[in-house]
Amino acid sequence: MTKTPRPAVVLLGAQRFDPSLSAAVSELGVAGRIATITAGWQERESEDEELSAHLGDRTVNLRLHARGDELFREDPELRDAHRERQGSLRHRQDFYRIRLEHELEADRVIRSRAAPPEILAEQVQASLDGIRELDQWHLGLCARIRTEFETRWDLANRPAVMRHRREIAEILDGCEAIAIAGGHVATLINRLSVFGFADLVQHRTVFAWSAGAMAISDRVVLFHDSPPQGPGASEILDAGLGLIPGVVVLPEPEHRLHFDRKDRVQRLVRRFEPAICLALPARSRVTWRDGVFSSAHDVMQLRASGRAIPFAARSRKVTT
């Protein structure tokens, strides 16, 4: 039996100014209703008039943020457990960050040392391996904490969760595509996970931008080369929905990445290999279908050489 290929996934850059979403929707010939997820906007979730108008007023907002609040009001036991889990994840993130900063600092010092090339190459590789191992360990830890939480609290079978999931599924039945907006990526991941979107998105075309695009990747990487408190370290937040495996999504590169810092670009790429690092500036987009990229507009790929070059999407198969 042939496996039905999942419909296309379109990754886009920021849509706040001069949006390009409707062009992507037209290109794929999506004519039906579109379910929107603006949970990343948190309390401003419902302020989606511009988005709706941009898509020709054929959207229905799934209200995942508000649903989350309703769910926790209806099920205080789950709310408390969820809050505790979030606290625990935050704690782990903090400790991971402490370790990571030390690993990155060691890597920086090693790279700046004068040594015979073969020794230097060996040591640089060893420090990179250490960082990769730490990233992987943290990612695994987050996944384990989430799985344990879902099992322990029987998430999928709690009446309030079931009711919301059923309502969402009914709305999605009448929709041809899902559009996932940017915003707060942790909030987005949480809402998508609580309402079981790993399954719900499988059979629909998905348009996702900024944090939305990060949230559907398999590894969410937080990044900023120049935050106010000093040079930033990119860090793994958690796993996303895993719709586009093997891709690290980097939105807003024009504000967050220093493409001229070859060493930083290089390290970022090598850290997450064999995944590819795609920078999505405003107005950029690329379509992914069954492991193959096409129709790339203004997307940049970060390369191990330390350069960022236009992403040649045609028939680009992703290695996972």
Partner: peptide, 17 residues
Amino acid sequence: REGLSWLMPGPLMFIYE
């Protein structure tokens, strides 16, 4: 700015509009 953002980092790393 430098002090407060280091002691209490804001959601800058989490928000991608």
